[in-house]
């Protein structure tokens, strides 16, 4: 019933010259999304990945179990000294992420362009 979560990885460089890794999600983010969210994140090389952008542009539905997966990702990133940012959230999920306090540990940007420009 839930739309399967897909994820893929892109590597880009910011206008300021920083290498960033973008994890792009598509579909629903729910309890069934562990592999697509945490698995995809854990497959990134820890030595070279310093900045991670989470792209939610293709995500329509995130429930509390999905938010918990994002928090688990943030915990692992904090433990390895990586910075995490999000973009592409709808206004509603921007509000929800703010309400649960994710913005304290991951900056939110409306678009990829705005995120890259700010980093």
């Amino acid at each position: 019933m839930q739309s399967e979560t897909k994820s893929r990885v892109d590597q880009l460089t910011t206008p300021a010259g920083h290498a960033v890794t973008i994890l792009r999600f598509e579909g629903d983010i729910a309890s069934t999304s562990k592999e697509a969210v945490l698995g995809a994140y854990q497959s990134l090389p820890k030595e070279t990945t310093k900045i991670v952008l989470l792209d939610f542009t293709g995500v329509d539905y995130i429930n509390s179990s999905g938010i918990a997966l994002v928090i688990q990702l943030l915990i692992e990133a904090a433990n390895t000294g990586q910075k995490v940012y999000c973009f592409g959230l709808s206004p509603h999920f921007t509000k929800v992420f703010t309400m649960v306090g994710i913005t304290k540990y991951a900056g939110l940007f409306p678009t990829q362009t705005e995120a890259l420009a700010a980093l």
Binding site: S64, L69, I71
Partner: peptide, 15 residues
């Protein structure tokens, strides 16, 4: 969120 990030609270439980 601070307790969750420090492993003192389950990341779930926000419903």
């Amino acid at each position: 969120i601070d307790r969750k990030m420090h492993g003192e609270e389950d990341p779930r439980g926000m419903g």
